[in-house]
Design a protein around this nucleic acid. Structure first.
Length: 195
DNA sequence: GGTGTGATCGTA
DNA sequence: ACGATCACACCA
């Protein structure tokens, strides 16, 4: 029996929430997948965060209540989805980077393009949103109540999750930045190209 | 397995 | 000008 995560779950530091999101189930728009890779972003100490420079029209959602989707458009063609966290007074979020498809694989394949291997459906932040049909219209929707939710089906996060620096960033790297967590050995973890 | 490059446009 | 990316070409 699966329960939707409540606002209380997200009302904590993104660095605490991120590893606990591993193995939770993202469900909505006719599909479901188990989260296997996430990254934390924190505007106060994090030059890589979209909110590092303060509030703008684009990053507004990150300054709002926890448990909402922050969806942004990037590279002129891709959408990426985050869960807003509640770190007090700090715009923070967890980027959903990859998931293992559970149900609705036909629908995912229809959205992603025919002939995709199962492991290519949700292995990457923009692939995941495409497989789920998530776009800018889903920005600021409530993940604890809305059509898209995160479920706890009593599968615990890994005891020893994989951990690394974040992917694709030029800013915000350092010894303190090992804010990417993933399920070690899962074939749906995204290809990691660190620049 | 890996690396290199073009696509494409909102944001700062 | 560049990006919290992807797909495909090509090499190994």
């Amino acid at each position: 029996m699966a329960r939707a995560l409540t606002r209380r779950f997200f009302d904590r530091d993104a660095l605490t929430v991120a590893p606990e999101l591993l193995n939770k189930v993202l469900v909505g728009n006719g599909v479901a997948a188990r989260l296997v890779e996430v990254e934390a972003y924190r505007a106060d100490i994090d030059p890589a965060s979209h909110a590092f420079g303060g509030s703008t029209a684009r990053n507004q959602t990150m300054f709002g209540p926890p448990g909402r989707l922050y969806v942004y458009f990037t590279y002129g063609m891709h959408w990426c989805a985050n869960v807003v966290c509640g770190t007090d007074g700090v715009a923070s979020a967890v980027l959903l980077r990859a998931a293992a498809p559970l149900t609705g694989l036909d629908l995912m394949r229809r959205r992603r393009g025919p002939g995709r291997a199962d492991r290519e459906l949700c292995a990457g932040p923009a692939r995941l949103t495409q497989a789920f049909g998530i776009t800018g219209t889903d920005d600021d929707t409530d993940l604890t109540r809305g059509p898209i939710r995160v479920l706890d089906d009593a599968t615990p996060p890994p005891d020893r999750p994989g951990r690394s620096v974040r992917i694709g960033l030029r800013e915000g790297r350092g010894d303190q930045d090992r804010w990417r967590w993933f399920v070690e050995g899962d074939p749906n973890v995204s290809r990691t190209r660190i620049r």
